[in-house]
Design a protein around this nucleic acid. Sequence first.
DNA 1: CTGTTAGCGCTTTCAG
DNA 2: CTGAAAGCGCTAACAG
Lengths: 332, 332
Amino acid sequence: MTLSDVAQRAGVSAITVSRALRDPEKVSPQLRDTILTVVEEMGYVPDLAARALASKNSGLVGVLSPGLTSHAFLALIRGIEDRVRPSDLRIQYANADSNSEDQLRQLRFFMSQNPAGLIHVGQIGDPAIDDLLRRAPCPVVEIMDVSRQPTDMAIGIDHRLAAETATRHLLAKGYRRIAMLGGAWDFRGRRRQEGFQAVLEEAGLFDPALVLSIDSSTSVGLGCHLLDRLRNEFPDADAAFCHNDDIALGVLFECQRRGLAVPGDFGICGFNDLEYAGFAFPAITSVRVPRYEIGYRAVDMIIRASGSGAYPAKVVDLGYQLVSRGSTARDG
Amino acid sequence: MTLSDVAQRAGVSAITVSRALRDPEKVSPQLRDTILTVVEEMGYVPDLAARALASKNSGLVGVLSPGLTSHAFLALIRGIEDRVRPSDLRIQYANADSNSEDQLRQLRFFMSQNPAGLIHVGQIGDPAIDDLLRRAPCPVVEIMDVSRQPTDMAIGIDHRLAAETATRHLLAKGYRRIAMLGGAWDFRGRRRQEGFQAVLEEAGLFDPALVLSIDSSTSVGLGCHLLDRLRNEFPDADAAFCHNDDIALGVLFECQRRGLAVPGDFGICGFNDLEYAGFAFPAITSVRVPRYEIGYRAVDMIIRASGSGAYPAKVVDLGYQLVSRGSTARDG
DNA sequence: CTGTTAGCGCTTTCAG
DNA sequence: CTGAAAGCGCTAACAG
C-alpha cells in the first residue's frame, strides 16, 4: 500500500496525494477532499523511513540522559510528551550510562537518524561530546542546569543557587550541624554540593566529615543507611540536606525508626519536590524544580528554532522554589 | 558522507562495505579489515532511514502503554533497555491515553514505521485494537497481565490471583472490615478488584461501600484522601488493600497523622513492591510484581520470534510474591 | 494548482 | 567472495 496506490485510486498523481497529506492548503479543496477520503478508505499510512530519506527530515527528537529512568525524570518526560503530541515530531529516549563513552555512542546513533532536535541532560563537559553537539545539524537543548554556556540553548535552573537557598533555610531554622547526604554523582549534584559548602563555610559551620555519599541504586534505602551512619558517627548532627527526595524520605523513615523527632531533633530538606513530599508526616521541605516545564519548553525551543532558523533564547533560567514544610518547621 | 564515499576510499563497491558492516562473515578478512578501518577513520554512520527503506526492516520496537510515565513502569523500562542494549534493535515509547482511540492512533503510527516488534500493555479489549494487532507484520507481546488470550504472545502475572492472595493475607491477620482503595482504572485494576471481592464474599465479609476510588493523578495524596474519607465514613474499617504502593504510602502517612496505629489498628497492603515499601516505618506489605523481568523477557521474546519465525511461547506467567512486612504484622 | 523527473542512501537480487 | 543493476516509497525541484 503506497502513495501511488492511493493516487491511482483517486485519479491523481502521487505528489498530489503527498501534498494533500502534508500541506493541504496547496491542493484545491475538491481534490483534497477526494484524496483524504480515499486515504481514509484504504487506511493508507505513509512510510516514515521513505519520507525521512527523501526529505532528509526525520521529525525525530532525541532525548539523551543518564538515569532517565529515575523518579525525578517522570515529570520531565510528561512535559516533553505533552509538547510533542500536537506537533509532528516524535521522541526517542536514550538512557546513557554516565560515562562519556556511552553518551558518545548514543549521540552518534541519534545523528545517524537525521534528528530534528536533540535534548541533552548535559553533565560531563567532555570535549568530544561538546564537539559532537556543536556539529549536530539540528537544534540542541541542554536541560536541567544552566550554569554552563550551552552549545545552542539551555533551559533549567541553577543548582548551586538552589542548594545555597536550601542550606540557608536550614541555618535559619537554627540547625548547626548540617549534613549533606546522598552525594554528588553528577554535574548537578556537584554544583549543589558547592553551594552547600559555600554557605556553611561562610557561617563557619562547614565540616567535610558530614558530607556522606555512596553510589547506590536504591535511594530510599540509601537514605536510611546514610542517616544511620551519620548519627552513629556524629550523634550531634541535627539536619540533612538530601541529594533528592527519595533520600529525604529514607532519612525520615529512619528517624521515625530511631525515635528521633522531626523537625525537633533533626531537620530534613529534600530536593525536587516530588509529589509525596507534601503528604509525608511530617511533610518534607524540598526544593521545587520545574521539571515538567523544562521538558515542555525544551521541545518548544526546538520547534521554534526549527521554524525560524534562529534560537528563541540562548539560556532560560526557570528558577526554583524552596517549599518549607513540617520537616524543618521549628523556630530558629 | 555515504556508503559509496567509504567504498571509493576503500577501493571496493558500496555493497561490499554494506556487507562488511552488517555481516562481516560474508567478506574476506583482509577486505573487512581495510573497510572497517576506513569506516572508523571517516567516522561513517549508516543512515537508518535508508536502511529501513531498502530492507523493509526498521529494527524498531514500539512500546505502547497508558500511564507509561508512572512510578511502577520504571523497572519495566529498565528491563526493556537492558535487553535491547546488546541487540541492534531500538525502542520507541508511546504514552497513549487510556481511551482506545488514542491507542489506535499510536498503533497506526508504529505500523507506519515497519516495526520489528510491538510491546503493548493491553488493557481495553477493543476489537479494533485486537484487529490491528493481529494484522501487525511483526511479533506482538502483550505484557503485565496474562489472563486474556493474546494475539501473539503475552508475559506478566495474573492480577486477579495476586489480589486474592493479598486479600487472604489480610484476612489471615485478623482484619475484617477491609477496604479497597484507589480504584480499578484499567483492566488490571478491575481484575484485582474481582479477586478482592471474590475472596471477601467467600468469607461473607464483602461490603461494596468499602471500595473507594477516584481518578486522580497524585497518588500519594490520593492515598491520604481516601484513608481520610474511609475512616470518616466507616470508623470501623481496619485494613486497606491499595491499588498501588503510592496509595499505600499515602494511607500510611495519613494513619500516622491521625494517630492510628499501623498495623495494630489498621493494616495496609500495597501493590507492586516499589523500593520504598521495604524501608517505610513500618515497612509496607506489598505484592511483588517482576516488572524488570517482564520488560527484559518481552524484548527477548520479540528477538527470538524474529530470529526463528516461531513464538518461543504463547503465554508466560512469571508469578507474583506477597511480601509480608510490618504494616500487616499482627497476630491473626 | 498539478504533474514530471530525478534521486535520497541503502539493500536486494542475480551474475560472475 | 565480490559486483552491477534495480528499486524500496517518498519528496524536491522544476515545469506547465
